[in-house]
Design a protein around this nucleic acid. Structure first.
Lengths: 149, 149
DNA sequence: TGCCTGTCGATGCGTGCGCATGTAAACTGG
DNA sequence: CCAGTTTACATGCGCACGCATCGACAGGCA
């Protein structure tokens, strides 16, 4: 049915499946170490990079995280429930919220980042030799660079 | 922070992002042509391959689609609501359900398959030259072949 | 100053998911 | 033939999503 030499179709289904299994692997590693979910990592990374005292507005996170407004709002809600983040009223603009990482988050973030990176390394190392990973990465980067949707 | 030469990390984030944008592209193409969602395609493919009179049990779809039982149950619910599929009682086993594609589904399925394939071809063609797609596919197939999770 | 418009963030609604459980039917050993 | 187990499928619950909307506030302009 699907032609054996249909490279795009085969490549797509492999790509999609690998993305799912890789994500599952990351989730499992973080869960196994009792760490917070991966969805908080980009948020914590952003907060770690920001001035710790001031905090960051929720609005600015839409841009840096590439998420729609409602997604940021809800992510923050979950992060607060998980004890990773606090909301504080913005002194100059009462519509706005300042977001800051908690002590817990600052302590956990490096472990999360390392665990995720280890999961990713293992994911590729299990399947490809280092030179092949390099070649794969080159091709994927070329694809990303032509972002014309 | 993230090392510039961290090929696994870079490859992973490209892989994950490309999987999302590719899926979005498929979804958009199908929606633009007024066709049913892509989630029904593997189901319809399975039903198209099966003897049209007899139908297929929901249980067997768990295996062929690689979905858990509840996911099949709900997918069938949606497919029925979309008019693509019918449930019929299994004559020999009243616990079981026989699933059959409707006429609509048999008419729509080839268009859906072609639209999806066209979206995938365009997705790669926009980003890579044919030889590169081939190389990418080779690497991805190697990764999939070592499925040892 | 007092409105009017635009911005910030939260949330109701509908929907899908995963887990766990429920219901009905089939099977099985005594 | 009957109780206990197993199988097939559905579904309630909690949670996340996207869309659309809402309430609160800020800023501009008359």
């Amino acid at each position: 049915m699907t032609d054996k030499t249909d490279a795009p179709g085969a490549a797509w289904s492999a790509l999609a499946r690998l993305a799912r299994t890789g994500q599952a692997r990351i989730d499992n590693v973080l869960a196994a170490e009792g760490l917070p979910a991966e969805e908080f990592l980009p948020l914590l990374e952003e907060l770690a990079a920001a001035p710790s005292q001031t905090g960051v507005t929720a609005k600015s996170l839409e841009g840096t995280l590439g998420l729609p407004q409602y997604a940021v709002s809800r992510l923050l809600g979950r992060a607060i429930k998980a004890g990773l983040v606090t909301r504080a009223p913005h002194p100059q603009d009462k519509r706005s919220t300042l977001v800051m990482a908690t002590e817990d988050a600052r302590r956990l973030y490096p472990r999360m980042a390392r665990a995720r990176d280890a999961a990713i390394d293992a994911f590729f190392a299990d399947r490809l030799r280092p030179g092949q990973v390099k070649r794969l990465n080159d091709l994927l980067q070329m694809m990303e660079d032509s972002a014309d949707e």
